[in-house]
Amino acid sequence: MKLTSLLVPENPVPHPRRVLITGCLGQLGRTLQATLTDHVRLGIDLPDCDITDPAVVPFIEAHAPDIIIHTAAYTNVDGAESNPDLVFRINMWGTHNLALACQRTGAPLLYISTNEVFDGTRTTSAYYEWETINPLSVYARSKAAGEAVVRTLLQRFYIVRIAWLFAPGGNNFPRKIIENADKHGRLRVVSDEFGNPTYAPDLAAAISQLITTEHFGIYHLVNGGSCSRYEFASEVLRQAGRGHVPVTPVAHSEWERPSTPPLHALLANTNAAALGITLRPWQEALAAFFQTS
């Protein structure tokens, strides 16, 4: 095993922390490496380092991180339905290995989870951090299992639930909407699935604030406001100068897919907001996305 990346501060602070980021090549991992510039950033990802291999525990111990930010995950929600063993091996047992590494090093763990741990059956309000989860899909159950591992094995942890992540240069919803609009000239988008778009640079900045507080616990870090997939797509096209492309709203039942996404799993940012950590409205974040993409 070896580190995928090692970045040192350009302008060192008196006591920079050693932050180990799993999944450092993914949307959020890349963004965290670009955001946490005051710290030494140790990045691991496939193929250099496999979190499901028990050998990752002594490997991490040898690098002595001050905190681990765990973004690595199997995130193909539909593909997860036909690969449950692989999904749980990565999302639960991989997390288990990282928790063991945290036990050995004394480093806290920040685990990235998902709004999909809620069933989304409630339509009157968003879910708070302390509410009981009820995951529906294989992917959601594996992420909930990862949460349980973190809570069981560690006392010093952050569980950060996010939703509908998008980042500059990533393979994400806004990019797919634009590509399909340009290819087909019209779109059909689900109008009865609701969530909180989350812009990776805003999330990374919030995580940077959060890890300095050492107020451990469960957090919902999403951009302000919420929308349906249809509303998100319509705003993407408007801001991308493609507002003329017709978008037809359709029910989720008309869009066959292997998984069962929660229809109304909105997240309320209560705990982080109490610490003064909030993210701007998703429409403003989307405008920033287009300015940097």
Rank of each mutant, 00 (worst) to 15 (best):
L3K: 02
L3W: 10
T4G: 00
S5W: 01
V8C: 12
V8A: 14
P9R: 10
E10S: 12
N11D: 13
N11R: 14
N11W: 09
P12Q: 07
V13M: 01
V13Y: 04
V13N: 09
V13R: 13
P14R: 07
H15T: 11
H15V: 12
P16K: 02
P16F: 00
R18H: 09
R18C: 07
R18Y: 04
V19A: 02
V19P: 07
V19Y: 00
I21V: 15
I21E: 05
I21D: 04
T22W: 03
G23I: 08
C24Q: 05
G26D: 06
G26N: 06
G29M: 07
G29V: 02
R30C: 12
L32I: 06
Q33T: 11
A34C: 10
A34N: 13
L36I: 02
D38E: 15
H39Q: 15
H39L: 02
H39E: 15
V40C: 10
R41I: 15
R41S: 01
L42P: 08
I44Q: 06
D45C: 11
D45I: 09
L46H: 11
P47V: 01
P47S: 07
D48H: 14
D48G: 11
C49F: 11
D50R: 09
I51S: 01
I51K: 01
I51M: 09
I51Q: 02
T52K: 08
P54M: 10
A55K: 12
A55L: 12
A55W: 04
V56L: 05
V57G: 09
V57K: 04
P58D: 11
P58F: 11
I60P: 01
E61H: 12
A62K: 12
A62F: 01
H63L: 13
A64N: 15
P65I: 06
D66Y: 10
D66S: 10
I68N: 08
I68A: 00
I69M: 13
A72P: 06
Y74F: 15
Y74E: 13
Y74A: 14
T75Y: 12
N76F: 11
V77E: 00
V77Y: 03
D78P: 03
G79I: 02
G79N: 10
A80Y: 09
S82V: 11
S82M: 12
N83M: 15
N83I: 05
D85E: 15
L86F: 14
V87D: 03
V87Q: 09
F88N: 08
R89Q: 13
I90W: 01
N91Q: 02
N91I: 04
M92K: 14
M92R: 14
M92D: 03
M92T: 14
W93A: 07
G94S: 04
G94M: 00
G94W: 00
T95Q: 03
H96Q: 11
H96Y: 15
N97M: 06
A99N: 09
L100Y: 11
L100G: 04
A101V: 06
C102L: 02
Q103V: 05
T105N: 07
A107D: 03
P108F: 04
L109Y: 00
L109W: 00
L110R: 00
Y111L: 09
Y111W: 12
Y111G: 01
I112Y: 08
I112V: 14
T114N: 09
N115Y: 04
N115L: 07
N115P: 01
F118A: 10
D119V: 02
G120A: 06
T121V: 12
T124A: 13
